[in-house]
């Protein structure tokens, strides 16, 4: 049997992470949610360095753009330039709906861009759609250990 999918949420707002966990609590796929609060931690997690040496590589990353220490686009560029990480799909999940942010994200290799809704109902539905599409439907590369 396949192991449960691993999601990494990179977001500096703990409330958003709590809500995402709630939205996915009923997921039939029992996806495992990991979260980090800034861009430096995100890269440490993905590269499995420091405190993250024993963590598994995520199958999908949900990445906010406005992040402390290293912003989302810098993290995205680092992931997509790394031969060991670039095949991991990165969903940009940001409140920004600016055309410039969207286009820059695609230029740097974002797999898709979902706007983070302000109201609770839409927020839940966006998070569920992301989980359903990527873990319920898309084919993802096997996790290299």
């Amino acid at each position: 049997m396949k192991t449960a999918p691993e999601l990494l949420i990179v977001d500096d707002n703990p409330a958003d992470v709590v809500l995402a966990r709630e939205a996915l609590a009923g997921s039939a796929r029992h996806c495992q949610i990991n979260s980090v609060g800034d861009g430096v931690e995100a890269l440490a997690f993905l590269n499995r360095t420091g405190d993250y040496a024993n963590r598994v590589r995520p199958d999908l990353v949900m990445l906010d753009l406005n992040l402390p220490k290293k912003d989302g686009l810098t993290v995205l560029a680092a992931v997509k330039a790394d031969p060991d990480l670039r095949c991991i799909p990165v969903v940009i999940f940001s409140t920004s709906q600016l055309g410039g942010d969207i286009t820059r994200s695609y230029k740097m290799g974002a797999n898709c861009y979902v706007s983070k809704p302000g109201n609770l109902h839409d927020y839940f539905s966006a998070v569920k759609s992301i989980e359903e599409f990527w873990f319920g439907f898309a084919s993802l590369p096997e996790r290299g250990e």
């Binding site: 055309g99 286009t103 898709c112 966006a126 759609s129």
Partner: peptide
């Protein structure tokens, strides 16, 4: 159906540079 809804409704496509 799921594919179309995800990519054309949930996802924000790149903004056409003409429109930008």
């Amino acid at each position: 159906k799921l594919l179309g809804l995800y990519w054309l409704v949930v996802n924000l496509p790149p903004v056409a540079t003409g429109k930008l």
